[in-house]
Design a protein around this nucleic acid. Structure first.
Length: 884
RNA sequence: AGGCACGUAGCUCAGUGGGAGAGCACCACCUUGACACGGUGGGGGUCGGCGGUUCAAUCCCGCCCGUGCCUACCA
């Protein structure tokens, strides 16, 4: 170790070199490698695999900081920890990105051909996958890199294939013609989840459909007039008296002249438009359902690239937009357009490229979801899977209970090719784990593999067990499945979390994780959602370069409160950096006072301050642990911050100074010992949040044994203080604070000498602490006496005791009367409030006894304090009157 | 349209059925041998509005206003 860390600490912590040095060392020593043979209780996390398309943003930084925090925390608790890293092939996004690259060179993937294109994507993956690993390592992520996985790895691909084949033979995967969401730009089907609705300034067109017998017309309204080319009926509500006498008659389809029937279906909203609606089963989800119910024909008018096909007659070859203009113009020319009006509405767009999605009739592979969802709902209901915060369970149930079949095929080249072969002879499908050479039904060798690939989330759904070696029965699976916790973002609860639960239950017979922690969304300082495409967002690498990884991790952790978004401005990282510096300086102080310290030398039990700060460390560790049990990361951070800054630095170090400078070698050594122990404790406690600076400091403190910080354990709890000792500490700290307050309020110069006076009753508690009290208040002496304070004194109260501050130069006492009057006024107000409660018979009668007792105590105490200050004020006044 | 959050100090946000806290910002003083990325002290809030439950409401309930998100869509 001597070569790794400097012998002492420089004035400033330099994050960059320290981070590089410790990252190298951690990896070289393999301390993050998980050993399934290690018998200690297991704790495992699989990383939500980042998309290889891009680089990590602050949301990833947050999520991985928190996972790292948990992983390190559990190691320090003595568990066998596995944090398994990896990346996701992200079918559509990655293909879109690489196609864009090709487009810059004026090429298309079709010119390259499938194989060459896929090779190109692998090159891309190599480049960006490596970058993601670098980013995670820069962040300090303590993953077991020897187990890194990628969703298209051979092992994971085998798992995907196994799952597809089993589900197919179980009847849970089927092929069917269905109206799907189609992205014309990507030329692929999208799942419902991948086609979010976005507002569009549409128009509503009212179109006249003449009766076939020429006796009038039905008017319908539509936002997509061009779809009338595919109409196969007009529907009305069966109980709509305006229209139901026309059911069964035929109307003449405008422009094409085809005759179509008027039908009745209860889905029609009588209050919308005229109450009659055109039915285009091949191009509208509602119409598709209606068409199925009534056995109507479907007429597809679109090519996959969203131009009109031969069924559109004279409009063939036009784009949807052009067709719309032409259709509207033609309707108008023929007097069939009865009116138009603005109609803003929301329609689906491609999540990846934002192209308007077209509902399109096509053959696709589907997964039957209801049978899989039922056990997954039960697992959350009965608590085998718990969400943090719990409110997300509602979201989960709502979606799962209304789940629809999942379109799993994608017309892409980048992904897991569907292991199904179609027979040209008998038309049957052969679905097997090994590539077949003949049809399973008729034995024909004229079979060809399905060209589609699977939706990316299909492989992601298997991640918690495919990464551990499934379908083989590996040691890793036995040891680390189910994983302990999944930490992820709310927006993929449906896409990913729910599907993992379903697949885990179905194939492993157990849930994939016990806890699901949903982390907050990271926004920018203006509250905008970070978005790479809009150029909004901060690169964590930039933040770390300026402030250091520890400062960024600290900031993210302390902002990670449950149930709320994080607003992240660079300014907020300054607080984190200040905290890192504070810890650094506390360590420098310790080292400066440890020059002659021998850690091997036995030391007597410390004094009260030493034992007190040890109890405070124990309390902070306890609070932090409890907070982490419930994934309340900000509370854990706050408990440790309060300890390090508010107790260790603000109080203990100040209290230790007299002992460290004293001649008493025993006291000095006990204080040095405590300083080292408590600093060690603080470093271990903070290590999960700030791994680099804590390691850097830890290794230069005396008594190191060559082990890394992560190889240590949390310290054992300290003995609690005896009640009298606790009372002495409480009083000491309060007296110091009060005296400082008096100094501040009277504006006494720091150099002005004072004497502090306290009643004899406090002598048993404070008597031993005169040196500390003098040092912390810059007082010349501490006197115990019940006599009235000297005339040139200010008086304050600490825990009900009258504390006087004797000022040698009475010229500074000018504000004392006003100060006392203000204090008395405050006490009077408090007293009046308490009295009002106690005077209320219903309060005394109905409130809990301990509440009433507490109010009575408060009343007594406040009254005594007021009287004390009043008599002091009276005395001051009489003195003033006499001297006047 | 339905559902779910949120509205607390100038800003960013914790928090709780018994007169509200932090960090930053602000004011005053302090270059005291760890630390000015610091120290000590201070000012600052009818806890969105209106009702209700309760001895007691910032907290529980209802309504309203505002903000955000999710789900489903009206052809």
């Amino acid at each position: 170790m001597p070569d790794l860390a400097p012998a002492s600490l420089p004035k400033r912590f330099e994050p960059g070199p320290a981070e590089a040095r410790w990252t190298r060392e951690w990896l070289a020593r393999g301390v993050f490698r998980a050993d399934p043979d290690d018998p200690r209780p297991a704790f495992s996390i699989v990383i939500p695999p980042p998309n290889v398309t891009g680089s990590l943003h602050l949301g990833h930084a947050l999520n991985n900081t928190l996972q790292d925090l948990l992983a390190r925390h559990e190691r320090l608790r003595g568990r066998n920890v596995l944090w398994l890293p990896g990346t996701d092939h992200a079918g559509i996004s990655t293909q879109v990105v690489v196609e864009r690259e090709l487009a810059k060179q004026g090429k298309t993937r079709h010119e390259l051909g499938r194989e060459a294109f896929v090779d190109r994507v692998w090159e891309w993956k190599a480049q960006y996958g490596a970058r993601i690993v670098l980013q995670l390592q820069s962040l300090g992520a303590s993953c077991d890199w020897s187990r890194e996985r990628f969703t298209l790895d051979p092992g994971l691909s085998r798992a995907v294939r196994e799952v597809f084949v089993r589900l197919y033979h179980e009847g849970l995967i089927y092929r069917s013609e269905y109206l799907v969401s189609w992205c014309p730009r990507c030329s692929t089907v999208l799942s419902d989840l991948e086609s979010p609705h976005r507002p569009v300034a549409g128009r509503l067109y009212r179109i006249r459909y003449p009766f076939a017998d020429g006796s009038g017309a039905v008017e319908v309204e539509t936002t997509r007039p061009e779809t009338l080319l595919g109409d196969t009926a007009v529907a009305v509500h069966p109980e709509d008296e305006r229209w139901n006498q026309f059911v069964g008659r035929r109307v003449c389809l405008p422009l094409l002249g085809r005759q179509i029937p008027i039908v009745a279906d209860a889905f029609v909203d009588r209050s919308f438009g005229t109450g009659a609606v055109k039915i285009t089963p091949a191009h509208d989800p509602n119409d598709f359902e209606c068409g199925r119910r009534l056995g109507l024909d479907s007429i597809n008018i679109l090519h996959p690239n969203a131009t009109l096909n031969a069924n559109a007659g004279p409009y063939e070859g036009l784009s949807v937009e052009d067709a719309r203009r032409r259709v509207v113009a033609d309707l108008e020319a023929q007097g069939l357009l009865a009116g138009t009006k603005d109609h803003p509405h929301e329609v689906p767009h491609c999540d990846r490229c934002d192209t308007l999605v077209q509902p399109l009739l096509s053959e696709q592979w589907f997964m039957r979801m209801q049978p899989l969802a039922a056990p997954a709902i039960a697992a959350v209901r009965d608590g085998r899977v718990r969400f943090f915060p719990k409110s997300w369970e509602t979201t989960y149930f709502h979606w799962m209970e209304n789940i629809r079949d999942w379109a799993i095929s994608r017309q892409l080249w980048w992904g897991h090719r569907i292991p199904a072969w179609k027979c040209a002879t008998c038309g049957g499908w052969t679905v097997t784990t090994e590539d077949p050479d003949r049809c399973a039904h008729c034995g024909s060798s004229a079979i060809t593999q399905e060209s589609d690939v699977l939706d990316t989330w299909f492989s992601s759904a298997l991640w918690p067990f495919s990464t551990l070696g499934w379908p083989d029965a590996t040691k890793e699976l036995a040891r680390y499945y189910p994983t302990s916790v999944l930490s992820t973002a709310f927006d993929i609860i449906f896409f990913w979390v729910a599907r993992m639960i379903m697949m885990g239950l179905h194939f492993m017979g157990d849930v994939p994780f016990g806890d699901v922690y949903i982390h907050p969304l990271v926004r920018d300082e203006k509250g905008r959602k970070m978005s790479k495409s809009k150029g909004i967002g901060t690169d964590p690498m930039d933040v770390m370069a300026v402030y250091g990884a520890d400062a960024m991790r600290w900031t993210l952790t302390s902002l990670a409160a449950q149930g709320r978004d994080i607003r992240f401005g660079e300014q907020s990282v300054e607080g984190g950096r200040a905290f890192v510096t504070k810890l650094w300086n506390a360590a420098r102080f310790a080292l400066m006072n440890l020059g002659d310290f021998d850690s091997a030398e036995p030391v007597a039990a410390g004094g009260l301050y030493d034992r007190w700060i040890r109890t405070r460390l124990t309390a902070a560790l306890h609070d932090a642990h409890v907070a982490l049990e419930g994934y309340r990361f900000n509370e854990a951070a706050s408990a440790l911050y309060q300890f390090v800054w508010g107790e260790l630095c603000d109080w203990y170090i100040e209290l230790a100074k007299p002992a460290l400078q004293s001649e008493d070698a025993g006291a000095r050594r006990a204080t040095q010992r405590t300083l080292v122990d408590v600093l060690d404790g603080a470093l271990i406690a903070l290590h999960p949040i700030m791994p680099f600076v804590t390691e850097e400091i830890f290794q230069v403190l005396p008594g190191r044994d060559g082990r890394l910080l992560i190889e240590h354990r949390y310290p054992v709890p300290a003995q609690p203080l005896a009640p009298a000792e606790q009372a002495a500490m409480d009083l000491l700290l309060e007296v110091v604070t009060r005296v400082r307050q008096v100094r501040g309020e009277l504006g006494l110069p720091p150099s002005l000498e004072i004497r502090v006076g306290a009643p004899l009753a406090t002598q048993p508690l404070l008597g031993a602490h005169e040196p500390a009290l003098r040092a912390l208040t810059r007082a010349r002496a501490l006197d115990f006496s019940d006599a009235d304070p000297a005339p040139a004194s200010a008086v304050t109260l600490a825990a009900g005791h009258r504390i006087s501050v004797e000022i040698e130069d009475p010229g500074f006492l000018g504000d004392e009367r006003r100060r006392l009057e203000k204090a008395i006024e405050t006490l009077e107000k408090d007293l009046a409030f308490v009295a009002q409660k106690l005077d209320n018979p219903r309060f005394v009668e109905r409130a809990k006894a301990e509440v009433v007792a507490a109010e009575r105590d408060k009343h007594t105490r406040l009254a005594a304090e007021r009287d004390e200050l009043r008599s002091r004020l009276d005395r001051l006044r009489s003195l003033g009157a006499r001297s006047a």
